[in-house]
Write a protein that binds this DNA or RNA. Sequence first.
DNA 1: GAGTGGTCTAGACCACAAT
DNA 2: TTGTGGTCTAGACCACTCG
Lengths: 260, 260
Amino acid sequence: MAKTGGTARAATAALDSLDFALDRGSPVPLYYQLAQQLEAAIEHGVLAPGNLLGNEIDLSTRLGLSRPTVRQAIQSLVDKGLLVRRRGVGTQVVHSQVKRPLELSSLYDDLESAGQGPTTQVVRNEREPASPDVAAALAVAEGSEVIVLDRLRLTHGQPVALLCNHLPATLLDLDTARLESTGLYRMMRTAGITLHSARQTIGARSATAEEAARLDEEEGAALLTMQRTAYDDTGRPVEYGTHIYRASRYAFDFQLLVRP
Amino acid sequence: MAKTGGTARAATAALDSLDFALDRGSPVPLYYQLAQQLEAAIEHGVLAPGNLLGNEIDLSTRLGLSRPTVRQAIQSLVDKGLLVRRRGVGTQVVHSQVKRPLELSSLYDDLESAGQGPTTQVVRNEREPASPDVAAALAVAEGSEVIVLDRLRLTHGQPVALLCNHLPATLLDLDTARLESTGLYRMMRTAGITLHSARQTIGARSATAEEAARLDEEEGAALLTMQRTAYDDTGRPVEYGTHIYRASRYAFDFQLLVRP
DNA sequence: GAGTGGTCTAGACCACAAT
DNA sequence: TTGTGGTCTAGACCACTCG
């Protein structure tokens, strides 16, 4: 029985009237079903920022779940930054509606190609011996064969970026036509490669005459540069990229979460 | 009993000889003690990349812990990107030794001030009415009082960055002397504010004449720009920063983890 | 078929925060 | 003192991978 005497306690009311539909026959885990429905409730404003979630014991008995299962669902949303737990207080919805985390920032952007807005022209798709820096980044022997990919990214018909990517030659076959229609990222996933982490360095410098010409900028214009090594779920490097963006038309936008 | 017949199985051997010292009297959780010691073993190379960790059941009985506790320890390292779990296979150390994740990239850097290398001069530390963009970022009323902080970051006596930060006026008191010796980040922590997440936009542009003069660059030199809003653990914005870095002396370097 | 991690349960005690 | 989340236990069954 909740204390519904004052307005201060009303924060929990929203959840009381919520009922979650859990399908035990479904292959999707119960904690995940609960997490998704909680997330949806938060996203749709049914659970407003600051709302208390009610204690875990009540919630678990009400849902017919064990407490660890409910905790697992809640924890996943805490990890996403949607909920906050406070010992002795409760679990509440985070105040600022931080939108979609965008997860891998430009990573998907850069590797994708399909989609409405941006298009990508494959300028070069070959194999060549690895230079020292490429070999180091991909953890292969210097001089061993690697895939080199040069692409030009356009939005609204305007050049935005020069993308140069290197991949281990043994990783997959890259058909240029499929590459332009499907995107590198999807082709990697199809080949059973799941990206897991990436290390990025973002800097800036002035455009050379050649870069300026290719990007339709003035010589000396500010460019954003990015170097990235991406790793699969076993920690093996699967992609090394050196990208150049027109600063006048592109910026990196991402969210950081602090792990406690 | 492990099958120690072949060399292929030797991967587990390293762990067998490891013994972990768990202190049940300590206030630090058992799963955390285990996680720290596993991480140390990985860092020191006792557990080499690719090594299997041995199954969770054995590990738990050997350590005198329950399986969920062991799983919690392992999971925390999986989240850090140090371990990989594969159903039907086992848990193994990730191949690439991805160094310290650096977590919040330049966030701590920018907010810190103490330390040997970089120093920070507080150029301005005042309160003023919030401009529209500042008010929006900090979720306060337009025109309400906010703290404005202008700082100059130096390394080796050379200017590196112009840092402009805005904070809600009610958040804390910023003594300039303490600010230069302690750093903004530590002062916020001391005030009970724990950073939780941040939203960043990184771009580039050419230096104006004034910026060039203050940063000891040529006019038109490439600059890195960064805008950030940082949130505490309740999701309230606690800091809004507009920073300018000399691209010739500074780059952002960070690691991204893909959440599965 | 054997071994692995993935999920789930039904309890328990503790530390911390508010009242 | 009461209620909350934080931690921990000792089992269970399932899904997947591999030989």
